[in-house]
Design a binder for these strands. Structure first.
Length: 676
DNA sequence: CTTAGGG
DNA sequence: CCCTAAG
């Protein structure tokens, strides 16, 4: 039946293959997280976070770039195949024959849209660009960027202002150095930020959430933040230098990234048994990865430069943790940054009016870092401050997965979860003298971060962005430890990672924005030219968040996309689901794709429309498409003055009306027929 | 799971 | 976007 019906609908003899159910891409509704506050301002923390995220990501999967590419290709190919399939029949029939079923009604005749007449291939190319992956990608990227409000322009502008960041990752130790250069002139203050992520697993005491008090992290945190320094523990250090890259294109949607990961079947290196404690398994996982990366491959040297332009230099040996490696990371773009320029960076980047203590938070927040360093002269308004963050701890992560799931799926799940968290769920918090600085508008000077004395008390923490409860089987064991509840499984693990980042801010300009489009790092070493190297920051995703409250028991929100992919089973149905999905206005290009697909497929076949035009756009469900079509029809009928949002080209609206009229008629005919 | 519609 | 009924 369905087949027949499809055939009938197919205009012009276009046959639409029936997609196996299995292939259907229905996606459950993802939880949405509120975007919360986006601010145009650039936050140092964000950058840091981005860097950390990037690093982690890279380490995890090898290189984001590569992944991205592959993914893209895969997607494209997939589409292409699909298209091909579709088209073949089509083309054959196109000649004039119509489907048996559709023929009688004369559906084919007089269809107003040229698209229908043309062979699928031709038509498809336009938007989907199935055949040409690069175009498609680019387009996609742009679209994504658009979605994110990151316009190419903004991008460029902000790129110019980027600085370079050097990230050093030291796996085991946490040492933070903060050096501040000088005020005064241009590139005065330099801050070395070394950060490291620690995994609880390593240290028993730290490991369990329950022992928050005892957690090393907290102690660390305290030490670092509250006081002085950071400690350096283990020798092995990996230094990663991230250089900011110019690629603008890489910024991409999260969802895509996630998908990529999935598709890629990213493998995670050792995932260990989850511990009750929260972090163990996950953390370990990360850790392992990190280790590997060091060894071989965190960052790709070979470079799949094609997509990712990251250049990595491994200076260190990979043998063990003890060795250091320096790599260059790719810069990524982040829309948040564009608005800032160097000056602003200086002034605004590190600002924090409100300080809050977060002794508790140290644990709860999830991630903390220790920072040590020198500080800069007080009056360095123009100066840059260097920070060295030794480590970041990732908030607890809970994963729920069926016992029958494979290890590989578990790994993927964790990866996705982590990615999601890094991408959207975290924001960087800054602690000064043990107090949390909440005002993002404060300058470093105002906050005291630029002062030498205070550096000792400077700390960075990664914390959940918002209090969003995704699912709750049960509240995280530790109230203070925010956990990302992804799914519950036999193994729940917390995760923390050790990554040390070293950020160097170049000359006068402030921090370079980081953008991440995909998971990969795209970085360019060359950037350093100007003042100093450019900062490379791996960026996780778009929205940054405003420094937020501590996450107590709350579960940070995770991206929808990510969520969709994570098998998440909530034990006790709790209301958390109620989250409303994030609003994502359709871009013109999306509308275009939708219109084109509907012209071909007609209304009433939203699943097919989804498959055809939005197959890999996870956040657009067929229901969304249907709704969008509904609104488009409405929009097309009202006066331009009454329309809101991004203006849709009249031409598209005209097509909407034409297609709507056409297909409505067809539907009516069909019904009439059926009735009779 | 999909569609179709109302909210 | 969400929710629901209906298939």
């Amino acid at each position: 039946m369905s087949v027949e019906r499809r055939l009938e609908y197919g205009f012009g003899g276009y046959r639409v293959p029936v997609v196996p159910r299995a292939a259907r891409s229905y996606r459950g509704r993802g939880l949405t997280r509120k975007k919360g506050d986006k601010e145009g301002e650039i936050r140092a923390f964000e950058i840091l976070a981005s860097v950390a995220g990037k690093i982690l990501q890279d380490g995890e999967v090898s290189s984001a770039a590569s992944v991205k590419d592959t993914t893209s290709k895969l997607c494209l190919q997939g589409n292409g195949d699909e298209e091909t399939e579709l088209s073949k029949p089509d083309s054959s029939v196109c000649g004039g024959k119509t489907d048996p079923s559709g023929s009688e009604t004369g559906l084919n005749q007089g269809y107003p849209f040229h698209d229908f007449l043309s062979p699928p291939q031709a038509t498809s190319s336009s938007h989907k660009g199935s055949s040409t992956s690069s175009d498609h990608l680019e387009k996609k990227i742009h679209e994504d960027a658009a979605d994110d409000n990151l316009s190419p322009k903004g991008w460029e502008m902000y790129q110019g202002q980027r600085e370079s960041l050097v990230a050093q990752v030291k796996p085991d130790e946490v040492e933070c150095k903060v050096k501040s250069a000088e005020s005064g002139t241009s590139p005065p203050v330099q801050v070395d930020f070394e950060d490291k992520m620690e995994i609880d697993m390593n240290i028993p005491a730290r490991a369990s959430p329950e022992n928050n008090n005892v957690k090393p992290s907290s102690s660390l945190f305290k030490n670092c933040i509250g006081g002085l320094g950071c400690f350096s523990g283990r020798s092995a250090e990996t230094k990663v230098e991230v250089t900011r890259d110019d690629d603008d294109e890489n910024a991409s949607g999260c969802s895509q990234d996630v998908q990529s990961y999935k598709q890629q079947h990213i493998s995670c290196n050792g995932v260990q048994k989850p511990r009750n404690s929260s972090s163990a398994s996950v953390l370990k996982h990360w850790r392992v990865t990190a280790a590997n990366s060091k060894v071989g491959g965190f960052f790709r040297t070979d470079g799949k430069a094609s997509t990712t332009k990251a250049t990595y230099n491994n200076s260190g040996k990979s043998s063990s943790n003890n060795q250091q490696k320096t790599q260059k990371v790719i810069p990524f773009k982040k829309r948040k940054f564009f608005a800032c320029d160097g000056a602003s960076v200086c002034d605004d980047l590190f600002t924090s009016p409100n300080k809050r203590t977060n002794d508790d938070n140290s644990c709860g927040s999830g991630t903390s870092s220790s920072v040590s360093g020198q500080h800069t002269p007080p009056n360095s308004r123009d100066c840059n401050v260097k920070f060295s963050i030794k480590s970041f701890k990732v908030p607890e992560l809970f994963i729920e997965i069926p016992a029958t799931a494979t290890v590989g799926s578990l790994k993927r799940t964790v990866m996705e979860a982590v990615t999601a968290i890094l991408g959207d769920g975290l924001h960087v918090g800054i602690l000064v003298q043990g107090k949390k600085v909440r005002d993002d508008n404060k300058t470093l000077l105002q906050t005291g971060i630029s002062q030498d004395d205070k550096h000792h008390g400077l700390g960075f923490i990664l914390e959940p962005r918002q209090h969003v409860q995704i699912a709750s089987s049960s509240p995280p064991s530790c109230a203070q430890t925010p956990s990302f509840l992804i799914s519950r499984s036999p193994a729940a693990g917390g995760l923390s990672r050790h990554t040390s980042l070293k950020l160097q801010a170049g000359g006068s300009s402030g921090v370079s924005p980081i953008v991440s489009t995909d998971m990969g790092f795209v970085g360019r070493s060359g950037g350093g030219s100007g003042d100093s190297g450019r900062a490379i920051v791996p960026l996780v995703d778009e929205r940054a968040s405003v420094p937020e409250s501590k996450a107590l028991v709350t579960v940070p929100s995770i991206r929808m996309e990510a969520m969709a992919m994570v098998p998440f089973h909530r034990k006790s149905g709790q209301p958390e689901l109620g989250q409303r999905r994030m609003r994502r206005p359709f871009s013109v290009s999306e509308v275009e794709a939708l219109v084109q697909a509907v012209e071909k497929l007609g209304t009433g076949r939203w699943r097919d429309v989804k498959l055809r035009a939005f197959d890999n756009v996870h956040h657009r469900t067929y229901v969304d498409l249907k709704d969008k079509w509904k609104t488009l029809v409405h929009t097309a009928r009202i006066s331009p003055q009454q329309r809101r949002g991004e203006p849709v080209p009249q031409e598209l609206l005209d097509r909407v009306l034409a297609a709507h009229a056409y297909w409505s008629q067809q539907q009516a005919k069909q019904q009439a027929k059926a009735t009779s």
